[in-house]
Amino acid sequence: MDATLSRAQRLRKHLRGQGEALVFLLPAYALFLLFLVLPLLEALWLSLHQEDLFGRGRVWTGLANYQKALSRPEFWKSAWLTLKFALITAPLELLLGFLAALLVYRPYPGVALFRTLFFLTTAIPTAVAAVAWGWFLHPVGGLANRLLASLGLPPQPWLTSPELALPTLAVITAWAGVGFTAVLLTAGLQNIPAEILEAAEVDGAGPWTRFWRITLPLLSPTLFLVGLLVVLKSLTAFGQIHLLTRGGPAESSMVWIYRVYQDAFFNFRVPLAAAEALLLFLVLLLMAALQFRLLGRRVHYG
């Protein structure tokens, strides 16, 4: 049909197609450009500049902000706290969610109720989760210290001691994420073909053997992927920390993202904060790249 059209007609048709596509794409991509790409570029620009002392705008300083950020002991302390936070949060969240998933991935009468109860935490807002734990760990009224007392143990300064604050926040974060990991791991467990497990059962493998030799190995790609997601999530945890400890006591829960917030909005060191944010982005990007590689492999060979 196209052969009967003149070159001009074909060009017009082509351009009309392009124009139509543009109309469909414009809303989303204009917003991406303005509110994602532009800020990212501006962060980069900011991080390479320095506020001029005489108020003449910003002057180019190259990598000086990065050098400054990386030479501050506070920065390394925050990076270390973030790592510690992630190393407690991620395995715990994975484990808690996995336990829930194991209890609800198979259908049985009443399973819907338990699924609802376990998946519910995905709907609990961070601020509410934080307040719930704030009360649960309250020095006087909290149940946690009461339970300790009934066991004859001394009360713990959960959120008020520099030693305990960060681990406590990590536990809270893991708790708040149980629903998330439970949903993903339930889906993962349900994707394991039942025939394999049945065949193993016929061959005389007990539930323990089946779990360790079949379920776990077959689930391991999902576990790894979900684990990565949880790590990524924990690296940017902010709300619960802001609500419960404000990064304290004595900066003991001043994780990386909180340091960025602090430097930008309280110390007014915007270029430095931009550099810190981009360094965090670099870490997240490396993690995400790992995730995409694995995802790609799974799609091709899975």
């Binding site: 596509a21 794409l25 991509y29 991406f32 303005l34 509110f35 994602l36 790409v37 532009l38 800020p39 990212l40 501006e42 962060a43 900011l46 990524l232 940017t236 902010f238 993202i257 960025v260 930008a264 915007v270 904060a273 931009a274 944010a277 981009l278 965090l280 982005f281 997240l284 990007l285 995400a288 790249a289």
Partner: peptide, 27 residues
């Protein structure tokens, strides 16, 4: 440019809001 635009969306998936909140605030 269809594939390129889709690629851009995939790439932007990797940008967490927590990283851009500062310049976004300035904007």
């Amino acid at each position: 440019g269809r594939e390129a635009l889709f690629g851009l969306a995939v790439a932007l998936l990797l940008v967490p809001g927590e990283v851009t909140f500062l310049p976004l605030y300035l904007l």
